[in-house]
Design a protein around this nucleic acid. Structure first.
Length: 410
DNA sequence: TCTGGGGTCCTAGGACCC
DNA sequence: TCTGGGGTCCTAGGACCC
């Protein structure tokens, strides 16, 4: 049976939200960043893009492209709030809404057409509602599957609406560069080019065996992608696979070398990971430490698997410290990351012993204060004097609002 | 004057057990 | 005391996404 899938992609989402919140920014080249001097451009307005400002650029680099560029430090809460309301609007048309990122979603409207008519009707109405309510635009792609809907939403920006009907697939794919497909990155593009494959048409006609030899189990999927085929379902709110890892990393404001500086960052990261794990009600057996050196290009990760599941900050810290002490650092450190994986999602039980129970309650109280007043309102004593030394946490455009599952469904 | 942060999936190789 | 093979668990690293 033919499905009808919509992909909604908010245009320059963070920048648009900022321009809407502050009329002085409208029509001007702006870029949303984190704070700190090692931050990069997260999103830029179309006015800034005209000057060549791109996501991922260092701020100084962006300024060189566009001297009048206005830098706005991002505000996660604003974007999460707007995102959540927009996603809730989508639920008026179908329960099958998949949050792909903070500014992208898929909708399976196959079973909604008897009520709303054509998918274009739904798209026009949704675009109008988002524009009226938030003053921002989006691009929507309509197609028989997610791969093509995403491709279609990319074809017209900003404020676009593109349909790829079943009978139009072959024509679209024939000359499309393989890189335009979601799932084919720079590396796969290069490997395919070495095989003489540059367009989706060529990819779709390539012998499956040849692709499998080169790409393993990815081979058959690549071929299907080249043909514009994709059976993956739209996975609605609350039915997503359980989270598999919880991690934080940060680029430091300056490279550090002294052990006490490194331990301070390690403790802070462990605390952040532990707090989030506890909020999700998960614990994990594997702790990973990731370090990027001052030269930016060299880095490594090490992991250790414990006998027991943990989620207390100091347990995570101890495990990470054990890893750190098992390696010899070769350069000053630019970035550190701590991740908890091998997760267990079962509800926690109250510990048997008074001492442990006290520790758990103290941890909970700290989590509570932190979640209300920000990242490091209360934390372990060693962190406080150096709070300003670590980098800021830039929200990524792909950041999934954690509370999205709690969207009220009418 | 450089280049963020949070994830998932896959591969390859080693240890260990049957 | 040798041989091969399968399965599971673990680690390290890379590709890809937003």
């Amino acid at each position: 049976m033919n499905r009808t899938i919509l992909h909604i992609d908010m245009n320059a989402f963070f920048a648009s939200v900022e321009q809407q919140a502050n009329p002085e920014l409208r029509g001007r080249p702006i870029a949303v960043t984190g704070s700190g001097h090692r931050t990069v451009i997260t999103t830029s307005s179309y006015e800034a893009r005209a000057f060549g400002v791109k996501t991922g650029m260092a701020v100084w680099e962006a300024r060189r492209c566009c001297p009048e560029l206005i830098i706005v430090i991002g505000d996660n809460r604003k974007y999460t709030h707007t995102s959540r309301e927009i996603m809730a609007m989508m639920l008026d048309y179908t329960p099958e809404v998949e949050v792909f990122s903070i500014d992208e979603a898929f909708m399976d409207v196959t079973h909604s057409l008897s009520i709303f008519g054509t998918p274009e009707n739904i798209a026009f109405e949704l675009k109008a509602r988002i524009r009226n309510r938030f003053g921002i635009t989006c691009s929507i792609g309509i197609a028989p599957n997610k791969l093509l809907a995403k491709l279609a939403s990319d074809m017209q920006k900003p404020d676009g609406l593109t349909t790829i009907p079943p009978e139009g697939i072959a024509g679209v794919m024939e000359r499309l560069p393989v890189k335009d497909l979601c799932g084919i990155g720079r590396n796969t593009e290069r490997q395919l080019a070495l095989m003489g494959i540059r367009t989706c048409g060529e990819l779709g006609r390539c012998a499956e065996e040849r692709l499998t030899r080169k790409f393993g189990i990815l081979g058959p999927r690549l071929r299907r992608m080249g043909q514009g085929r994709d059976d993956s379902p739209v996975v609605p709110f609350g039915e997503e696979a359980e989270v598999k890892s919880v991690g934080h990393s940060m680029t430091l404001e300056r490279d550090i070398e002294a052990r006490e500086d490194i331990l301070r960052v390690l403790l802070r990261l462990s605390e952040m990971v532990g707090r989030r794990a506890r909020r999700y009600n998960v614990s994990g057996r594997t702790v990973s430490l990731y370090i990027r050196y001052a030269d930016f290009f060299s880095s490594f990760g090490r992991q250790t698997t414990l006998k027991n599941y943990i989620n207390l900050s100091d347990e995570i810290y101890r495990a990470a410290l054990g890893i750190l002490d098992s390696v010899t650092l070769e350069q000053p450190v630019r970035l550190m990351g701590v991740t908890l994986s091998n997760l267990n999602h079962q509800a926690e039980q109250l510990p048997l012993f008074e001492e442990e129970r006290k520790r758990l309650f103290a941890t909970r109280a700290m989590d509570e204060v932190n979640s209300r007043f920000g990242d490091t309102a209360v934390t372990f004593g060693t962190l406080l004097p150096e709070r300003e030394q670590s980098g800021s946490f830039v929200i990524a455009p792909a950041w999934r609002p954690s509370g999205i599952r709690n969207v009220d469904v009418k």
